[in-house]
């Protein structure tokens, strides 16, 4: 199964050099264990743009789709046997990046024919 891991943050640009070193080491471990699919940091939610083209003309809105005190500052997509493995891996990940994490399963591929997960 694949899981999306959201890195939960409440302050912008809050990452430290030590955290980056720990995250790099953790990522190396994910890759070595065959769990790595993709990961990335996200810009501050205030610089996002919401697009709504469900009506006649597209409407653009400045800012995030919902104002919250916490948001995703980055994410991983990992491959894990089951939730227990995902939790075991990301318990370590939470320590490495020094943030709370949300583990959320990706829907199984058969429900989206033609959808192919990216592999490193």
């Amino acid at each position: 199964m694949q899981y999306l891991i959201n890195v939960i943050d409440s302050r912008t640009n809050s990452g430290t050099a030590e955290e980056m070193v720990a995250i790099d080491a953790f990522n190396e471990k994910l890759i070595a264990g065959g769990h790595w699919v993709f990961a990335g940091g996200l810009a501050d939610p205030t610089v996002s743009t919401v697009i709504d083209n469900r009506g006649e003309t597209p409407v653009l809105t400045d800012g995030p789709f919902v104002e919250t005190k916490e948001w995703a500052a980055g994410f991983w997509i990992i491959e894990a046997r089951d939730l227990d493995e995902a939790i075991a891996l990301m318990t370590e990940g939470s320590r490495a990046c020094n943030r709370k994490l949300e583990v959320r399963p990706l829907l199984a591929p058969p429900q989206y024919p033609g959808w192919m997960p990216a592999r490193p």
């Binding site: 199964m1 899981y3 894990a80 046997r81 089951d82 939730l83 227990d84 995902a86 583990v103 399963p105 829907l107």
Partner: peptide
């Protein structure tokens, strides 16, 4: 089912 909680003894 959806989150892949395993059916096993830890």
């Amino acid at each position: 089912a959806a989150a892949g909680i395993p059916y096993r003894v830890p």
